[in-house]
Amino acid sequence: MSTKRIADEPAYVLHRYDWSETSLILEVFTRHHGRVALVAKGAKRPTSSFRPVLLPLQPLSLAFGGDGDIRTLKSAEWVGGHVMPTGEALLSGYYLNELLMRLTARDDPHPELFE
């Protein structure tokens, strides 16, 4: 079975979990693929290029591959345009992320909701 590769996919990080000593499991919300689980190998290392980019509430462009439940993150770039919110705006953003986590199914795209 061939692995499916996705490039230049607009996304937001909804949640991140420790997976191993150096890696993270990410729940991301993408424009064309909906909610997707990704493993970011080595993302917790001090020299990782993922470390400063994989922040919640920030627009990203992701490349990932794989055909299992948890796919592998290949690259992540900050698209820019938003400043990290603070105070009540930050709490509202985290609440919105939790709603997306609980009310959307994996691999079910919602492009209108993403916009």
Rank of each mutant, 00 (worst) to 15 (best):
S2M: 10
S2T: 12
T3L: 09
K4R: 01
R5E: 12
I6R: 12
I6T: 14
I6Q: 12
A7I: 07
Y12N: 02
V13E: 09
H15L: 14
H15P: 01
H15K: 06
H15I: 01
R16E: 09
R16W: 09
D18G: 11
T22N: 08
L24M: 10
L24Q: 15
L24P: 12
L26Q: 07
L26Y: 04
L26R: 03
V28R: 13
T30Y: 07
R31I: 06
H32N: 14
H32F: 03
R35E: 06
R35V: 09
A40N: 10
K41C: 01
G42I: 03
A43P: 09
A43M: 08
K44N: 07
K44I: 00
K44L: 01
T47Y: 02
T47N: 08
S49P: 06
S49Y: 05
R51L: 04
P52D: 00
V53G: 00
L54E: 05
L54S: 03
P56S: 15
Q58Y: 04
Q58S: 08
S61H: 03
S61M: 11
A63T: 15
A63L: 05
D67M: 15
D69V: 08
D69G: 15
I70A: 05
R71Q: 11
T72P: 05
L73H: 06
L73Y: 04
K74W: 13
A76F: 14
E77D: 09
E77V: 05
E77H: 07
W78H: 07
V79R: 12
G80C: 08
G81A: 04
H82N: 15
V83Y: 13
V83W: 12
M84T: 11
P85S: 03
T86N: 06
G87I: 03
G87D: 02
E88R: 15
A89D: 10
L90S: 02
L91P: 00
Y95I: 05
Y95L: 09
E98L: 12
M101L: 13
M101C: 07
M101H: 01
R102I: 14
T104H: 08
R106Q: 09
P109Y: 03
H110V: 13
E112K: 10
F114R: 00
E115Q: 11
